[in-house]
Amino acid sequence: MRSGSAVRFLSMSDDDAGQLVRAAANGDQAAWEALVDRYARLVYTVARGFRLDEADVADVSQATWLRLVENLDKLRDPGSVGAWLATTARREALALLRNRWEVPSPEFTRSEPIDESQPEPWQRLVAEETDAELWHAYRKLPIRCQELLRLLVFEPVGSYAIAAAALSVPIGSLGPSRARCLATLRALLSQPAPQRRT
């Protein structure tokens, strides 16, 4: 029996999401807040995947939610609101980058590979030894792998459509990519631990 995953990452079916969208379109504030609870992290994570500062990330997130408000009764497939949000956040982020004259291509808009000489801002969050090792290995993955896994851990079940929308890649490529990224992560984890800064 597997433990943990189903509890931590409660998955919402398309039907549930579609019902929330329809309820919110009819004025149900609680349904709107349930949508925010469910997808705020997805929108924020997609926005964070680009080279934007915190204020811009906040603007992309807010613009994405405002766009959903104005489209609540216009979505062709309310059940796919997660993928719609991921696509919209990605477009808003790219539009913002274009406006800054930083005409982006996917290779250059992702966050940069970690500079090992810099202290990691997340280090305080990963105090436990095993977490620290996992985090260290994760940050050594190719950027595309980091982004892919970051999006896939939201919902182990059924999140392919959302991840494909967020990354703008064919849905069929995600399974093989995930297998490859996990294999790389596992290989990195089995390497001797790097020298610690303590």
Partner: peptide, 13 residues
């Protein structure tokens, strides 16, 4: 591995 990573990234993100 994905579940462990999920816990970690839930804090980071």
């Amino acid at each position: 591995l994905l579940v462990r990573l999920g816990s970690l990234l839930a804090e980071v993100d």
